[in-house]
Design a binder for these strands. Structure first.
Lengths: 343, 343
DNA sequence: CTGAAAGCGCTTACAG
DNA sequence: CTGAAAGCGCTTACAG
């Protein structure tokens, strides 16, 4: 029944045990100031701290230093399987330098994003990883105006002068289309991601450039509003109603590609027999699906890791020139793509 | 180039603007003490705070109150798709009451678990959700001896007097086996999860009880050391070498079941034609796999939510009688199970 | 209803 | 090399 508070041991308890002033203990225990204290005292302090089970009160330390040792991360939805590897990449880096990660799911909703940023600010996060950016993004603008260090991953914004770790979308799209063209496809469709995102926009632009350069049809494009299976399904239906002559389709991401497969199943079509389907990102377990999906694989863990490394450099005050890193993806050829059956 | 610190606005700035003492501002801004201040002053304070863009410094507040408003969660690996929904369940609850979630991946490694608990303690977490428990678990013991409120989810421990939200494993196993027996299977195997976990142990025991009650073979069991595809693969091979007479197999979880499918593929067998395969948990996208896996679906989000709700009750001081909640799973019948082709 | 003071557990100029 | 003091931004008995 009784709440016996564990009676946290403080720097003063250690000081008392050793018989020195608590400021001496503080200095002895901090690596930056340890040099100012005689080795003998340092040793006695350390021993006493150990014996008493002392551990620094981070809340007090943070208040004094005005640092929280916390980094935030904004993701659309933890349940979307491409994000956990990115998060782990980020987490592994920030933890290794003594920071903690605070994550928020925004469901790609501007309002939730703002709310998340607010609570993160209350927590005095020292920096933030943003994987939810739109090409015009109020949250990014807010970070800039409030001088909160941030690094974009996965998606970037139109304005420049930002740090970002993204994918070489041109290269990714070219890999996928080269593959389809090599198989003999000439009428290739694209179900694009939202044009409000850099990924949707850039992949579409890369697609358009490619097909024009090869003198292929450039009007077999439909756009989604969000990156979901349902939207992929809907957009495929739209396109197919308008023009069903294509023999292959590149989804703006894997979810969209799965939506295409669903739409095809409903239409009595199958991949790759009727239409070849390729995705983008390489979500986990795609290789076990039916059919195993050909896709552009992006380095998710590495992206998180590089983003976090960059952010920590900014936070630690190392001067970092704003830079957009473009990581190179590669193609994984699986069962959902094959030579066209009709010409 | 210049680091222009945003000059955080404090309670004193607000006080100055209104012309009152800062303690009055503190009282006016806190819902518990607002009653002690005259409505007129409260209004003026609120207005000033709004205008100045004041937000309470959580580090100072935490230090004073000795509360961190942080909850921890221990998971094996974020990348394992059954955990994100649980985490979101937890996160949605703790955020709704103004708390922050701090997560750690332990990779089911006792050492990492201890380390994570240490850093969480440094952060003065007020409670912890543990999804990584083993039947004998040092971390759980540590939480008890250190008087840290905790709730177990997914797996529980052997000792009692703990709060836990787990699955009615008996019911789940029975659903799966009833299904297989109804299809006509009589020689059913079980690739069990690690006996050091409650899930591995309980599912195996439920399996044994079931087959004995029905007078079926009770020796077609092999155990894994960890819940991985590779271990499922290895264990299946072992069993098959020893005795290949079974026509159906229940995996200790979905990953193990996928490992069984891999082993079968390598042996030139296929599901459900040669052997029916069922899993447990219902990871996302299982329904799209080849073959779509029959599995016991557990309420992951609800489990996280209930666990977090319980934990917050404990943290907020509401007396909670230690209780093991057992949530009821259900069977999802898909393509990996069918009537046996050989008798 | 409001103010003045003390204190949460730290760090860090300032003296010596 | 070490101590004494001030202060980070808050809350809360204690007076009045």
């Amino acid at each position: 029944m009784t709440k016996n508070k564990p009676k946290k041991v403080t720097i003063r308890d250690v000081a008392e045990m050793v018989g020195v002033h608590h400021s001496t203990v503080s200095r002895a225990l901090s690596s930056e100031t340890r040099g100012k204290i005689s080795p003998a005292v340092v040793r006695r302090v350390e021993r006493a701290a150990e014996k008493l089970g002392y551990s620094r009160n981070l809340m007090a330390y943070s208040l004094k230093q005005n640092r929280s040792f916390t980094i935030g991360i904004l993701i659309p939805d933890l349940v979307n399987p491409i994000f956990p590897p990115m998060i782990r990449g980020v987490q592994d880096v920030v933890e290794s330098v003594g920071y903690t990660l605070m994550s928020a799911n925004t469901d790609d909703d501007e309002e939730k994003e703002k709310q998340s940023l607010r609570t993160m600010q209350e927590r005095a996060i020292e920096g933030i990883i943003i994987s939810t950016a739109h090409r015009q993004d109020e949250t990014v603008d807010a970070c800039i105006s409030k001088d909160i260090p941030f690094v974009l991953i996965n998606r970037t914004v139109d304005r420049d002068g930002v740090n970002a770790v993204v994918i070489d979308e041109d290269f990714g799209v070219r890999c996928a289309l080269d593959h389809l063209v090599d198989l003999g496809h000439t009428r290739i469709a694209h179900i694009a991601g939202p044009h409000t995102t850099s990924t949707g926009h850039e992949r579409r632009r890369a697609f358009e450039e490619y097909v024009r350069a090869k003198n292929l049809r450039d009007d077999l494009i439909e756009e989604t509003h969000v990156y979901t299976i349902a939207e992929g399904h809907r957009a495929f239906d739209n396109l197919y109603k308008r023009d069903s002559s294509f023999t292959a389709v590149l989804g703006g991401n894997d979810l969209i590609a799965l939506g295409c497969l669903d739409a095809m199943r409903d239409l009595g079509l199958s991949a790759p027999d009727d239409i070849s389907v390729a995705g983008y990102n390489d979500m986990r377990f795609l290789d076990r699906m039916s059919p195993a999906l050909t896709t552009v694989v992006i380095p998710k863990y590495a992206m998180g890791k590089l983003g976090a490394t960059t952010l920590m450099e900014i936070v630690e005050g190392k001067h970092v020139e704003p830079l957009v890193h473009r990581l190179r993806p590669k193609l994984a050829v699986r069962q959902s793509t094959a030579a066209p059956n009709r010409m």
